[in-house]
Each structure stands twice: as C-alpha cells, then as structure tokens.
Write a protein that binds this DNA or RNA. Structure first.
Length: 264
DNA sequence: GGCTTCTCGGCTTTGTCTGA
DNA sequence: TCAGACAAAGCCGAGAAGCC
C-alpha cells in the first residue's frame, strides 16, 4: 500500500490522493514517469515528484525514520506490509503506582519470537532491543505505553513508524478495549490468562514481589498473549482500512493490481 | 483518576489554476 | 503577467475514549 500512497507528501491530502487514483495514477513509479499528466492539488508537480523520488529511495534503503516523519499517525497502517520484517508488537505492564507507576514488564513480538523484559532482570536491555525496530504496533500505545517508555528511557529516540490499533480500529467502526475486540474477532486466550485485565497484571506483579514466582510466569504469559494477538488484529485492521480507503475512491484492491497501478 | 491522543468542525492560510 | 476563484492543509479547542 505504501507505494500507492501520495498523502504523505506535505500539503497533499486524502482528497488529492483519491483524485490521482481515480485518474489512473496509482503507483509511485507511474507518477514519476507521467507526473505532467496529473493534478497534484495545492502542491506543485515538481515538488510532488521530488517527494516521490525521496520516498522511493527511502523505501529501498529501509529508512523507517523517513516514513515515521512523513506519514501521519493516522496513515501509519499503510507501511505495515512493507516494514513487516522490522516490526515489534509491543505492550507494557506497570506496578500501578507502587513506585511512581513504573514499568514492570515490556513484551515484544517480532512476528516470530516473543521477548519479555522484566524489571530487576533484563529491562535495561530495552534500548538495545528496540533499536532493531522500524515499526511499532501497540494498542493505545500513543496514550499509555510510549509516554511511559519515553519517561523510563529518555535517551531512546522512538523514531519508528507507530501504528496504534486502538485508533485505527475505531476508524473502521470497531470500538472497545483490547480484550473485548479480541473476543469480537474470535481470538481466544489460554485458560490461565482468560479474563485477566491490566489491574490483574498489577496484582500478579505484587504477588511476585512477595515471593510467588508462578505469578510472574502468569504475568509473562498474559503479556505474551497481548502482543501476539496484536499481530492478528493488525492484519484485520490493515485489510479493513485498505478496503475502506480504496472504497472512498470507488476502487477495490484489484484495481491496484492493474498494470498501470503496479508499474506502467 | 490522570494522562494522552483521537476525531470533528470551523476558521485561516497558502498555493495552483484559469482567464483576461 | 496578474488577479480572482478555488481547493487543500494547518491550526485550535471541545469532547470522547482507553490505558494502567
């Protein structure tokens, strides 16, 4: 979807992008060869062409910072397939204000492997682990996880593309908390963690601190299911947003498979 | 409960296009 | 070349929402 995107160009909005698609310009490569044939709204054609040349180069170099800056958070979903090999699904748990509301665990899932960094053990490795990510996927991370992490790790730049599924799903009419949405899409949890909430995560951490090691195991499993399930939700969200975005232009995903859409 | 960001609507600003 | 019309982005504030 990223190579069909034009609304990341400064001062070029969704309306102009839809007009470009409708008039047959559906891929960066096509625009670069035929830019003189299309209207780019309030942006000059030369400026738009320069932006698309930069975008092509940035994608070839896997430069996630470029797209983190140019793509609005609302449109971050478009980069999900292109940066799939540099994604971390992320979720944190906290102690609920026990010591200034500090982070107890950080769960990270790259699509293959789950890593849980635990306070007092390996949480200090977070800056090193996160430096490998080009894109972060969270649920309400913009409102909670990322501000908390920025506070705990002020030297980490957090320059990744950030897809917040909470707001992305809301755009396609799916509302509610993470657990409610998981149920809505038939995503099941294990017997041990089914029904647990963020408040239970705080309780489990406190039990662990009192010497109950099995509580930490349950907390890590809860954290693991949170981030692994984010991948399933991201795929659902991507499909829904793509269909809705194309639908607003009177197009379907099949229209992007046309030769002119792919190349020329 | 506090925090943060979202959406939405209205207004302002900026740049392109078109015709004289 | 220039001025007016038009389109789109930016900005702001209010209210809503979900996180722990």
């Amino acid at each position: 979807m990223l190579t069909h995107t034009f609304c990341h160009i400064p001062r070029l909005g969704a309306h102009t992008e839809r007009e470009l698609w409708r008039s047959g310009c559906r891929h960066w490569d096509y625009f670069l060869e035929h830019s003189h044939e299309f209207s780019t709204g309030a942006v000059s054609r030369d400026e738009a062409k320069r932006a698309i040349e930069e975008s092509t180069e940035a994608l070839a170099e896997r430069n996630h910072q470029y797209f983190a800056d140019s793509l609005s958070s609302k449109e971050a979903w478009r980069a999900w397939p292109e940066f799939g090999d540099k994604i971390f699904y992320l979720d944190i748990e906290t102690d609920g204000g026990q010591s200034g509301d500090s982070i107890t665990t950080v769960g990270l899932y790259d699509g293959k492997e789950f890593t849980c960094l635990v306070k007092g053990q390996d949480l200090g490795d977070f800056p090193d682990v996160i430096s490998r990510a080009g894109m972060l996927v969270t649920f309400f991370g913009q409102g909670f996880d990322i501000p908390m992490l920025k506070k705990a790790f002020p030297l980490v730049p957090f320059d990744q593309i950030h897809l917040d599924l909470c707001f992305a799903l809301k755009r396609v009419g799916v509302r509610g908390g993470l657990k409610k949405i998981e149920k809505q899409f038939g995503i099941a949890r294990g017997d041990e963690t089914d029904g647990l909430s963020g408040m239970d995560a705080i309780r489990l951490w406190r039990q662990y601190q009192r010497g109950d090691d099995s509580s930490l195991e349950t907390l890590i499993e809860y954290n693991r299911e949170d981030v692994v399930n984010l991948e399933v939700l991201a795929a659902i969200t991507y499909g829904k947003l793509r269909d809705e975005t194309l639908g607003m232009a009177g197009l379907t995903p099949a229209d992007f498979d046309q030769p002119s859409a792919r190349l020329f």
